[in-house]
Design a protein around this nucleic acid. Structure first.
Length: 318
DNA sequence: GTTATTCTTAGTGAGCCTGG
DNA sequence: CCAGGCTCACTAAGAATAAC
């Protein structure tokens, strides 16, 4: 399997009027990519600018950032042509790698705008190199700019940042510092396309947790009534578990937590995040199940009591 | 039954980061 | 300038409970 390390640059409206007049918010104007083989050695590269069909003026802030002038784009090919060739170039057996999670969403949004056939019928598996950098060198959570990672790893900065080809090149360079192959167990899913049915839902099992991505629901309450959404079977053995702390909400119903106990694997923490679909007016659920110890259980109990006390205090202050 | 208090959720906006 | 994520602070309002 090959790795397609990809980066996009896009433009947007320069004024409110143009923004309202167009259905597309971000128009892709450059695609850059590096192809790596299964040993992560570079075997090819792709780079092409795109002639805009939606926005004919460069947004000033964007222009200063990506250093592309409109004049450079006038003789380029259209998005359909370039993106079509790019996807052909990607081949059959590949996985995308991007810095952060925005690029695959915007690629798919632009493709749908031009009625191109979709990349995937459901969530799209990819590697978020920004996330892998955080797992390898930081705390798994903080998100750094590409420049920060390149500085940190003392990678030679021979070309300017914020161009599709150079950022794809630097992202691949950062990848070459990932010496532990187990790092690539931490794949991500782009959720531009949500699972179409219950059978298509994602149940991804990682080293010490399971991630579930639901099909769309009209609202939170409907989601929280769904059997599969609130199910907490043990991801290590598939056995039913005993609920120790019922699902409770924090952060104004955006997150829910629970604690259950598996006969053979002990305590598990369940977390539900309510997410809005970027494509449609609906929500979906991202649920994670993770092993915890006794301390973990008391932590969740504390959190449950804390959210109550915080609310109580606020009321008393009024 | 009516009113007052407490509990709970919903929604918003600010301020920080990332991306273009 | 635009978008997203995340957390925190705050307000509004509905549901449940207690007191009259």
């Amino acid at each position: 399997m090959n790795y397609i390390v990809m980066d996009l640059e896009w433009n947007q409206a320069s004024d409110e009027k143009t923004k309202l007049a167009n259905e597309l918010l971000f128009e892709i104007i450059e695609i850059g990519a590096v192809k790596l083989n299964d040993k992560k050695h570079q075997i090819d590269s792709f780079h092409e600018l795109i002639k805009p069909q939606v926005f004919h003026r460069m947004n000033q802030v964007t222009g200063e950032l990506i250093h592309i002038q409109m004049e450079q784009l006038s003789n380029c090919r259209s998005f359909e042509e370039v993106a079509g060739d790019f996807l052909k170039w990607c081949g059959e057996d590949y996985v995308f790698c991007t810095w952060g999670g925005a690029d695959l969403t915007e690629l798919q949004r632009n493709m749908e705008y031009y009625h191109m056939s979709s990349l995937s019928s459901g969530p799209l598996k990819y590697y978020d190199i920004q996330k892998l950098f955080s797992i390898a060198y930081e705390d798994r959570k903080t998100r750094r700019s590409l420049k920060y990672a390149v500085d940190y790893l003392e990678i030679e900065q021979d070309i300017a940042f914020h161009r599709a080809d150079s950022d794809a090149y630097y992202t691949a360079k950062v990848m070459s510092h990932f010496y532990n192959p187990a790092l690539f167990d931490n794949y991500s899913f782009d959720t531009y396309q949500l699972p179409k049915s219950r059978a298509d839902e994602v149940h991804a099992i990682f080293e010490n947790y399971e991630k579930y991505i639901s099909r769309p629901f009209p609202d939170k309450l409907t989601a929280m009534q769904d059997k599969e959404v609130i199910s907490t079977r043990c991801f290590l053995c598939g056995a039913n578990t005993k609920r120790r702390i019922p699902w409770f909400s924090v952060n104004n119903g955006k997150h829910y937590y629970t604690v259950v106990c598996c006969k053979t694997h002990g305590y598990l923490k369940g977390k539900i995040r309510m997410r809005k679909s970027v494509r449609d007016d609906c929500i979906y659920v991202v649920k994670t199940l993770k092993s915890i110890d006794e301390n973990g259980v008391t932590d969740i109990l504390k959190r449950k009591q804390q959210t109550r006390e915080v609310r109580k205090e606020r009321r008393h202050r009024l």
